[in-house]
Design a protein around this nucleic acid. Structure first.
Length: 314
DNA sequence: ATTACATAGAAAGGTCGTCG
DNA sequence: CGACGACCTTTCTATGTAAT
């Protein structure tokens, strides 16, 4: 079995009758966004059977040796939380939650999220963006340098949130520098979620560990993307551009799958009672949007190998 | 090279229970 | 009551990592 959750049928929000939708949200069972409560205290509370905000408020009035903050304090922050949840204010929770727990806002923004990945000419600040891919779970769009790249800035504003891999440090600074992009402030960076689950080795390492197969694009990486763009600029071969776009699209589409798998794994690890740990459904893989050219991939692989030999490893 | 963040460990500050 | 350790959270530092 490739994906651990592929066969899992999730509880849908509508399956439970008579319960307001927000009560089904993991955030309603979260406490570590309250100042003075960290993930350890939250875990203890769950182990004690305190499983949601209303129960925490009651418990904070009782004699206890878990909470170090007053009931007044809990009440104040729970009131703010109730308001934020009722208005779908994901930003509030993003700011209050410790970074490694920010995946909990995903259900709040999933209806308007875009997965984003950029390719550039390199990693320094003098390098430029070559192409960007946006995937929203249903449609995919590529933005290409010298073509439609500038329109990205406006089109991004249609989304509540973005999802990236290491975007906080890489994609976003590039876009701000080059496109004066006002990206949505709600940003789920998968790198830290997957890191906290023990997944290392970058996006490719995560994909490999999760059994996500890249088929003919196996072995193609970010440096490869630099060379593909260079080849396209020098020769104007459409097939080189399309190979780059295929790689960029593959990365971007995989972000959604990784977020859902990561979300489910994080939820599984919580000390919260089982009925409140609701999984999300794993998205299906769409048909490929671009053709990757085998012969181009092969010849670039050979030239990389040649260069490695020339520079003499060891 | 650049950038932002995680982690770990240390130190500070708070609170609780326990003991004399 | 005060003193103490245990425990937690927060803050600070440094070191590491991942993106192309």
């Amino acid at each position: 079995m490739k994906y651990p959750y592929e066969s899992h049928i999730p509880d849908s929000y509508s399956e439970r009758e008579g319960t307001p939708m927000e009560r089904e949200n993991i955030l309603y069972h979260s406490f570590c966004h309250i100042p003075g409560i960290g993930t350890r205290t939250e875990e203890k509370l769950w182990q004690k059977g305190i499983k949601d905000w209303s129960e925490l408020l009651l418990y904070s009035g009782e004699e206890n040796n878990i909470l170090k903050v007053s009931q007044r304090h809990i009440e104040e922050y729970l009131q703010k939380s109730e308001e934020a949840l009722a208005t779908n204010n994901a930003l509030y929770f993003q700011e209050m939650l410790p970074p490694s727990e920010q995946y909990r806002i995903f259900p709040l923004v999933r209806d308007s999220v875009c997965y984003l990945d950029i390719e550039t000419t390199g990693c320094t600040s003098s390098d430029v963006i070559t192409c960007v891919c946006l995937w929203n779970g249903a449609n995919l769009k590529s933005y290409i340098r010298y073509q439609n790249l500038p329109s990205l800035a406006d089109e991004l504003l249609e989304y509540k949130a973005i999802v990236t891999y290491n975007g906080r440090a890489f994609d976003i600074p590039f876009m701000q520098r080059e496109l004066q992009c006002k990206a949505p402030i709600i940003h789920i960076d998968l790198r830290f979620i997957m890191f906290s689950l023990g997944y290392r080795g970058g996006l490719k390492g995560v994909e490999k560990a999760l059994g996500i197969d890249r088929k003919n694009l196996t072995g193609v990486d970010g440096y490869f993307a630099v060379l593909l763009w260079k080849l396209y600029e020098e020769t104007n071969q459409e097939s080189a551009l399309h190979t780059l776009l295929a790689y960029n699209a593959e990365d971007t589409i995989n972000l959604e799958k990784i977020l859902v798998l990561g979300y489910n794994m994080k939820i599984d690890k919580l000390a919260l009672a089982e009925p409140y740990k609701m999984h999300l459904s794993v998205p299906l893989t769409p048909q490929p949007y671009y053709n990757a050219d085998e012969s181009i991939i092969q010849s670039i692989k050979e030239s990389i190998e040649q260069r490695n030999q020339d520079t003499g490893l060891f």
